[in-house]
């Protein structure tokens, strides 16, 4: 029953903050300019800052409110995500949640009845019995059966998730304090991805800047990881210093990045889009500030993008027209932190 309910909910559920669709042209434009502004030096930078202020003001005035309003607040539940695995995980989550709710209703309901019926003030007289072996046996066996019902689908999904074979491409993910390194193993492309500047400025203690004014506050990076849609991608995950954990909720799992050890996981996203996540293992003072952004592009677009990365000159040219992609040169410069 739980599963049925779960399926129903899964379809209805909207996009969370991490499951942004590819942004529309207008917001793209905004996005691009913001980044640009931050990379200009000297006077230009100051002008840029003013421009930024204006832009934020404009934002506040509702200029580009749609993109901010897309943030779903008061959210209650997990995302079903965008992969088969993440939806299976979501289904399991809903199943076990409902099982717990039902048991809870029964147990708490019985308690409530007892509390109302068997109170001294209503003249209840205490019985004297103190055990019932049959009841004990039943109440041992029934929970065991329920547990088996929970464990069964979990085992299936887990086995499915553990199978990293037959991946079409491999990406090495390395956690650093406090940024992520990505390397496309088969194509000699690698770069560092760190917290976007506007978030970084705003999050400083007493910055006077408002997180409300920053798009994808703390969930935006200078260079997102780009992967192709409809492709089984394997991630090999490790760390260069302390333990981190690579987590994009829409993909349905997190995997710890352990220094000196490789862990692997995989994903297969059907639909292009931008998916956000965060480091999920305490890794020092800026643990809260090393987000993850995965941009899933259609296969052909991805191929173009990758080719551009492999050839820096072409990439520089491409950058002028690229949307979210950044030149390799820029990425090679040390990130913040």
């Amino acid at each position: 029953m739980g599963v049925l309910l779960a399926r129903g909910r899964a379809r209805r559920s909207g996009n969370g903050w991490w499951v942004g669709r590819v942004p529309g042209p207008a917001s793209r434009y905004m996005d691009l300019n913001w980044r640009r502004v931050f990379r200009m030096g000297g006077v230009m930078k100051r002008i840029g800052t003013i421009y930024l202020r204006l832009a934020s003001a404009a934002l506040a005035l509702g200029f580009s409110l749609p993109s901010l309003a897309a943030v779903e607040r008061w959210k209650l539940n997990m995302t079903p995500g965008v992969t088969e695995v993440s939806r299976q995980v979501y289904d399991i989550h809903m199943t076990i949640l409902w099982i717990c709710i039902v048991i809870g209703v029964l147990v708490f309901g019985a308690m409530a009845v007892a509390i109302f019926r068997f109170r001294k003030s209503r003249g209840a007289v205490a019985a004297t019995w103190s055990h019932n072996d049959k009841a004990e046996v039943v109440l041992t066996i029934v929970p065991v059966l329920i547990l088996v019902a929970m464990a069964w689908p979990a085992t299936q999904v887990l086995i499915h998730m553990a199978d990293t074979r037959n991946a079409e491409m491999t990406i090495e993910v390395t956690g650093y304090q406090w940024k992520w390194g990505y390397r496309y193993v088969d194509s000699d492309v690698s770069f560092i991805s760190s917290l976007a500047r506007n978030s970084d400025d705003t999050r400083q203690l007493g910055s006077g800047l408002s997180p409300d004014q920053v798009k994808s506050y703390l969930l935006d990076v200078d260079r997102p990881l780009v992967i192709p849609a409809d492709t089984k991608v394997r991630f090999v995950i490790t760390s260069g210093d302390v333990i981190h954990s690579w987590w994009v909720p829409a993909l349905g799992w997190k995997q710890d990045a352990i220094p000196g050890i490789i862990n692997d996981q995989w994903t297969l996203v059907k639909e292009p889009g931008i998916y956000r996540g965060q480091c999920a293992e305490l890794c020092g003072k800026d643990h809260g500030f090393m987000p993850i952004v995965v941009e899933v592009k259609p296969k052909t677009e991805f191929a173009q993008w990758l080719a551009a990365q492999q050839n820096p000159d072409a990439a520089a040219a491409a950058a002028a027209i690229a949307t979210t992609a950044e030149p390799v040169a820029a990425a090679a410069a040390p990130g913040q932190g």
Binding site: V107, A110, M111, A114, I115, F118, R119, K120, S121, A124, V125, A126, A127, W129, N132, A135, E136, L139, T140, P143, V144, L147, M150, A151, A154, T155, L158
Partner: peptide
């Protein structure tokens, strides 16, 4: 570790159920 952990719900459940049974047909004050 998943199975072993889940098993703990059984003895813990026994405790919870038994507390409820203790209240049942009692003469309670609060």
């Amino acid at each position: 570790f998943m199975y072993a952990t889940m098993l703990i719900a059984v003895p813990t459940g026994i405790k919870v159920f038994n507390w409820v049974f203790t209240m049942w047909r009692g003469s309670m004050t609060f």
